[in-house]
């Protein structure tokens, strides 16, 4: 039995208090414009968010951080932390992601006390790094002996399932609809992992103009339930 997976489930759980439920990453802009309004339109948005944004940022970072941990090249991790932060041009999503990363780091540091997590904390304290959830997640998964592809898969699952929770509240959708979306989305996650495993640093940070623009627009949204 693979008991090492259970601690990672804890990190993937939407009850894990990282504050991810406060960030829609531009989804709220699409909801307010009426472009995302039901199960079908949300599913389409979620596919784009995964295949055109997450795989080139968080997902690719999971893989590259995992490789860096295997090779003991910590400087590569701090470089990726900076790239993840500075490629995120919309201020709200950048700061939101940083907050989630910071909370996740604090929690996991308390739970695991891993040296690499303390080192990350030091880099942030020295203002050399910013903090990113995909990096914290990969550090924990790597220490638990989870494989590279599963690390990426579980990270993407947690990012996607918290977005589904957000959509259920914001669109709104029924709880059953939310669960149906997560279930139907599983093949998309596997496909995303396959794609990521074929990517390299050259593919890092590719943005989709529309998604990014919706994240920038959110800064000027007056009535809102999300911070980004």
């Amino acid at each position: 039995m693979d008991n090492n997976i259970l601690p990672l489930f804890q990190l993937c759980d939407s009850n894990f208090p990282t504050g991810a439920f406060s960030h829609s990453f531009g989804l709220e802009s699409y909801i307010q414009e009426g472009k995302v309004h039901d199960q079908e339109t949300f599913f389409q948005w979620l596919k784009l968010y995964l295949h055109e944004q997450l795989i080139y940022t968080d997902g690719l970072a999971c893989m590259l951080v995992y490789d860096a941990l295997m090779n003991n090249e910590h400087s590569q991790i701090w470089k990726l932390d900076r790239m993840l932060t500075v490629q995120n041009l919309p201020r709200e999503t950048r700061e939101g992601t940083q907050m989630i990363g910071d909370r996740m780091l604090k929690l996991t540091e308390t739970l695991y006390g891993l040296p690499i997590l303390s080192q990350y904390r030091d880099e942030i304290r020295k203002k050399n790094s910013f903090g990113h959830p995909s990096i914290v997640f990969s550090m924990v998964a790597h220490s638990l002996g989870i494989t590279k592809s599963n690390t990426i898969l579980y990270y993407l699952y947690s990012a996607i399932s918290s977005q589904v929770q957000n959509a259920v509240r914001a669109i709104p959708l029924g709880q059953t609809a939310g669960q149906t979306i997560i279930y139907k989305f599983i093949p998309e996650l596997s496909e995303a992992v396959e794609k990521i495993l074929k990517l390299s640093l050259d593919d890092f940070g590719i943005v989709s103009p529309g998604l990014e623009l919706s994240q920038m627009k959110h800064e000027r949204v007056n009535i809102r339930i999300f911070m980004s």
């Binding site: 041009l89 919309p90 201020r91 623009l213 627009k217």
Partner: peptide
């Protein structure tokens, strides 16, 4: 048209 505007990390 559609636009977005934001502050950079620097």
């Amino acid at each position: 048209f559609k636009f977005g505007l934001s502050r950079l990390p620097v």
